[in-house]
Amino acid sequence: MKHLKHYESRENTQKLRASPTGAFLNTSFQQRLAQNYGQLSPRLREAGDYLVANPLDTATRSLRSVSDESGLAPATFSRLARALSYESFEDLRDALRAQIGRQVASFASRAEGLRKSGENGARGHLDRARDAAVGNIDKLLTQIDADRFEAAVNRLHTARKVALLGALGSTGIAEYLGYMANFLGPNWTQLGRMGASIGAALADMDERDALIIITKPPYARVSMRAAEMAHAQGVFLMVITDSHACPALRIAQSGFIVPTEGSNFFTSYVGTLFLLETLVAMLASKAGPDAAERIGEIERRSRALQEVIDI
């Protein structure tokens, strides 16, 4: 099975230690795998990759069948389950069954939409794009831990500074997030914008601050290294990606895996934009009257500078 390239200095095959808090036990299978991927042996990673790629087969077939299909020993899957703090592989399968159950309606509606969009032309492309976009959002909503997301938003709300970093295809997404968030306060900054030094910006950050990294495969080295640097300095690190294999997830205090399936040849950012716009809306609801006053002042100045035109 082909694996994504990982930017790691060395293999760490030590057995995963159980989380000291009960919160970990409430996370989804993919979240558990993502948080601890770097600590798993290559064989256990291969087993995890297979389960992520084949959740329905895993949930409905016997362990022996899963073993035969994957080419991995049954004991490998049992070890993976224990490494991720499940009592047994059957408990892991129950978690996958619950998640699949929440997705059934979404998958059925997407399948029906794809069937109806079989014709060629603009209508067909529009229908397929719509189905992929709505499907990504629906899948995100079935997988995300709302309490963890709210806790992350609360941490961003109290941060002294919030830095944003997106490279390659994620650059514009980070810039859009910065544009939205700057209406709420001046403490949001996009790193590396217009050639500015990322290192210089990170040098002034500590545990009072937060860094949001948006990254999709192939992972930009600068994003991975910035995550490591911020983590070492005690900065609150939030990572938004689309794969449990993202190296930065294992050191992030808050990480979210966003579906990115699309009808085109490139990675879809619809789900990511949905998550980020929701994040800003939640921040705005916590900001109080000062934020509303700031937004009004920005609008007045924009009109005075004729940056916008009223119709």
Rank of each mutant, 00 (worst) to 15 (best):
R79T: 12
R79M: 11
A81H: 10
A81K: 10
A81M: 09
L84Y: 00
S85W: 06
S85M: 03
Y86T: 05
E87G: 14
S88P: 15
S88F: 15
S88I: 14
F89T: 11
E90I: 00
E90R: 06
R93V: 15
R93F: 13
R93K: 15
R93S: 12
D94P: 01
A95R: 07
A95V: 01
A95F: 07
L96E: 13
R97P: 02
A98V: 07
Q99D: 11
Q99N: 06
Q99P: 03
Q99I: 03
Q99G: 07
Q99K: 06
I100V: 10
I100N: 07
I100Y: 08
R102D: 11
Q103P: 02
V104D: 03
V104C: 01
A105R: 09
F107T: 05
F107L: 08
S109P: 03
R110M: 14
E112W: 07
E112Q: 11
E112V: 13
G113E: 05
L114P: 02
R115C: 06
R115E: 11
G118C: 09
G118E: 13
G118F: 12
E119Q: 12
E119V: 10
N120F: 03
N120G: 06
G121A: 04
A122P: 01
G124H: 08
H125R: 11
L126N: 03
L126Q: 07
R128G: 14
R128A: 15
R130I: 11
D131M: 14
A132V: 08
A133R: 12
G135T: 01
N136K: 01
N136W: 09
D138A: 01
D138I: 00
K139S: 10
K139A: 10
K139P: 00
L141G: 00
L141T: 04
T142S: 05
T142I: 01
Q143V: 07
F149K: 10
A151D: 15
A151W: 08
A152P: 03
N154M: 14
R155Q: 14
L156C: 04
L156R: 02
H157L: 14
T158G: 07
R160P: 01
R160A: 08
K161S: 13
K161W: 13
L164W: 06
L165S: 09
L165V: 12
A167V: 10
A167L: 08
L168R: 15
G169W: 10
S170K: 08
T171E: 10
I173H: 05
Y176H: 10
Y176T: 06
L177N: 04
G178E: 14
G178W: 15
N182R: 15
N182Q: 15
L184Y: 12
P186Q: 11
N187I: 00
T189C: 09
T189Y: 13
Q190W: 10
L191I: 09
G192W: 05
G192D: 03
G192A: 03
R193P: 06
R193S: 06
A196T: 04
S197R: 02
I198A: 01
G199V: 07
G199Q: 13
A200R: 08
